[in-house]
């Protein structure tokens, strides 16, 4: 299911499967509604557009034409929080994962490298559940294709703080904690969040770095650790509209998601724990 965005990329597939590649034009409500109808007829719809148009413009169709009908689909977005920063607010979607997270039972994949995508897409399409696959031009240097659960990529030993990096923020997070007593775990599947892995790895200090709205996973982490004293730092894209263009790297810096910004925030968080935490 397409709404003009990326339609050229599917032209050849459309020639081969004219009944299975559907471009409805610039009509996102219809695109998701049609996906619901396709699913009701027994198909497995894959729905694609730019993140704000797919998730935010058509949110009620996602809620009612998929979830309320009891059917699933695979939503695949591009654009992420600010891949095209120069395009301005209309093309930024930092709240997409938070919005999907208002729904029940969705799987959310946020791959941090192109090589992580094929398996995620294949599994999603072959499954039955509703899945949101959030693609981005941003990438880590290395792929972790099996990182649905938390995968430790830097082990600082017992008692260290735990940093969870979601998707393409991993490299910046690793650079930020160089020399600090922080274990870093990576995941490209924030929903369902790997609660078991979190409980196994977390001590008293948890840092979550996400490439979308700051605090999106605060709820699930807090619930997972509700039975133990802990401090939590949630980093991500800020809520305020910056009204600035520039590049994605500029926005990383303005939102404190570049290595220097992350290190400042993490350093302050750890220092506060040493000053006020239990001895």
């Amino acid at each position: 299911m397409l709404a003009d965005i990326s339609a050229d990329a599917f032209a050849e597939a459309g020639r081969r499967y004219p009944d299975r590649v559907v471009n409805v034009g610039i009509r996102e409500q219809l695109m998701v509604g049609v996906a619901g109808g396709l699913a009701l007829a027994g198909q497995r719809p894959i729905v694609h557009s730019y993140a704000p148009f797919l998730v935010e413009r058509a949110y009620e169709q996602i809620k009612l034409d998929l979830d309320h009908q009891g059917v699933g689909a695979v939503l695949v977005s591009i654009g992420a929080s600010y891949d095209r920063a120069e395009a301005g607010r209309t093309h930024l979607a930092p709240a997409d994962v938070a919005l999907i997270d208002t729904l029940d039972g969705w799987t959310v994949h946020v791959p941090g490298h192109p090589d992580e995508v094929p398996d995620l897409l294949r599994d999603a399409v072959c499954g039955q559940h509703s899945t949101y696959l959030r693609l981005s031009l941003r990438s880590n240097r290395r792929a972790y294709p099996q990182a649905g659960g938390l995968q430790v990529v830097r082990d600082a030993g017992p008692g260290a703080a735990l940093l969870v990096a979601v998707g393409p923020v991993l490299d910046a997070a690793l650079a930020a904690v160089a020399g600090l007593p922080v274990t870093v775990a990576y995941t490209h599947r924030p929903r369902p969040f790997d609660v078991t892995g979190l409980r196994a790895l977390a001590g008293g200090e948890v840092i979550v770095v996400e490439p979308y709205l700051a605090g999106t996973s605060t709820r699930v982490v807090a619930e997972a650790l509700a039975d133990r004293p802990h401090r939590l730092l949630s980093l991500g894209v800020g809520r305020a509209e910056l009204r600035r263009y520039g590049t994605a790297e500029d926005h990383d810096r303005w939102h404190g998601l570049d290595p220097a910004g992350l290190r400042r925030a993490i350093g302050d968080f750890l220092a506060a724990g040493h000053h006020t935490g239990p001895s």
Binding site: G37, L38, A41, Q61
Partner: peptide, 22 residues
């Protein structure tokens, strides 16, 4: 399931497309 207005026709278009694809 319906109630919020303006959802049935899109679902109907999708259902018709799905039947045709099959």
């Amino acid at each position: 399931g319906s109630g919020s207005l303006g959802h049935g026709l899109g679902l109907g278009v999708g259902t018709a497309l799905g039947l045709r694809a099959q």
